[in-house]
Amino acid sequence: MKPGYTVVLLLLLTAILIWGITYLSTHDRIEEVEDVSMLRLDRGRRVFLLGVQSTAKWDSVEAKELTQVEKVWSIVEVDTPRVQRLEEQVDRQGVTLEFVEFEPDSSSQDLHAYVWLDDTLLNAWIIEQGLARVNREQSHPQAEQFLRHEQEAKAAGRGIWAMPAQSASADSAAAPN
């Protein structure tokens, strides 16, 4: 093969690989639902659902010897019914991550994204179904839309907004797809 063609082929391969990196950076499968606001992906990374308030109880783990990093926050108690509800719908499914500009509430090192399950924005669906509240400390493009979803969930008495007698029917609300 002429050198010129080889060069073009290699540069084309380079472009394909760069595209591949971009694709794999935004597409993965859900491995585990750790919390209604937190998913572990198949390849190992954890992503926080932008705009969704965690329902779990968190606590900080004390620094150990040799450790001078900030205290590590870990989940100590999970809101099991909500997590199970979410797991039924999304576990092991392929998702697309949409990264948008947002102002982090702290110097967070974790991924924050809109998570799309096919055509459904999971972040919005969780709030609509009353599985969690809106995280009001995060500023992002769909913040106002999420607040409207929360109002609708409150008005309909879904999930966490349900009165005790209505909680069984509220928990059987529609699936994302």
Binding site: I21, R43, V47, F99, A113
Partner: peptide, 19 residues
């Protein structure tokens, strides 16, 4: 912003060498 584990990107340098 990437779902890939960070160490994955250490393959980018040898990838570019090969290419």
């Amino acid at each position: 912003n990437t779902a890939l584990l960070p160490e994955t990107f250490q393959s980018v340098n040898p990838m570019f060498i090969l290419l």
